[in-house]
Design a protein around this nucleic acid. Structure first.
Lengths: 192, 192
DNA sequence: TCGATTGTCTAGCAACGCTAGGATCGAATC
DNA sequence: GATTCGATCCTAGCGTTGCTAGACAATCGA
């Protein structure tokens, strides 16, 4: 029995290694550089081993996305806790979101831009993703305003942040005015 | 002299054929299906011919993006013209934008999600892209509000639309409430 | 009519995601 | 302690990708 448990532990450890290595490689050189060959080499196993853990590259991206979502949710909650008052919380939340996207572009892409084979906006959405949205909702729901559904408000606010994050990184928006854009967004969207 | 002109016309025609075929194929089966081989087969030339017109696949995506930008700019202006009053213009503009993204997902991706090797937010940005932004600015600048730079306001509004478009199509946002989100966005962002 | 130039194609390179099938190793049995 | 047997892992290879070198043919100027 203990032998089998040890094997399962080792297997789980190797799986974490795969995900962490994929993330690191993607963050350092972009997702295009995350090939099954390179990834296999880094973890010091052969290619087929990857396929005993994941169906394919897509699922590896999905695993990175889930880990990232958990991390992001924690960061957002920590940021919100550190501010006083609904309005201030929204501002620091927005900054924290964009900061996360800026510091972890590959993880952010795995979560929201790439196809990681994950379900969204359904009841079978993975827990970490639902929780990341919940983290946004907790703070943004406070400033949705009268008669506006908090979830709908959160979706709109989130979409705006997502747009700013992706367009800025793609070079579509000059980065120097990000702070002004955030201020404008919070000013207009948040009631109070 | 006339011979050379004829050849140049034929060459230009073939280039348009390449771009149109790439667009059609991408729209029908997604950009992944747009391989140099398939594209060459459709235009009834061999692969290397593509490389005598474009540096590579990236530049073909870029060409599709430019054509799409011109088309989008015209559509946005037509939509805005059809509405009376600044506020109504903003609403139809937003709907027209999301509609374009929804009807031409591959072109939209070429413009704003994929790397088409185009410059952005610089003075050497291609004219069609600057003009598409200008089309947004013309309508959105009217409702930026006192003391808010029209371009900055346009960027924020655009980012929100872009977020809604991409997150919805990726299945991150349920599509059934799109109209409510647009209403909320216009309500809050537009002054007047 | 002949050489040069232009245009196009065939063939092939390295790298990709993914998989079939054989070797190897460790645990359980006699 | 030797032997079987199943799980584990690797070698090798398939089909496809973007892109290119070099051969070949058609066309033009002299």
């Amino acid at each position: 029995m203990s032998v089998q448990e040890r094997k399962e532990r080792e297997r789980a450890g190797r799986e974490r290694l795969i995900v962490a290595t994929a993330r690191e490689l993607a963050e350092r050189q972009g997702w295009d550089a995350v090939t099954t060959r390179r990834l296999a080499e880094r973890i010091e196993y052969s290619q087929p081993v990857l396929y005993s853990h994941f169906r394919g590259k897509r699922e590896i991206i999905g695993a990175v996305a889930l880990a990232g979502a958990a991390e992001m949710a924690a960061l957002l909650r920590a940021a919100a806790r550190a501010a006083d008052g609904p309005r201030a919380r929204v501002t620091v939340l927005a900054r924290a979101y964009l900061d996360f996207a800026d510091r972890n572009p590959a993880v952010y892409d795995a979560m929201f831009r790439l196809d990681g084979g994950l379900a969204f906006a359904h009841e079978d959405t993975p827990e970490p993703l639902k929780d990341a949205f919940a983290a946004l909702l907790e703070t943004l729901g406070e400033v949705a305003g009268e008669g506006v559904h908090p979830a709908l408000f959160t979706e709109v606010f989130w979409a705006a942040l997502h747009g700013l994050a992706t367009l800025t990184r793609a070079g579509r928006l000059p980065p120097e005015y990000t702070e002004h854009r955030v201020e404008l967004l919070v000013d207009r969207l948040a009631t109070v």
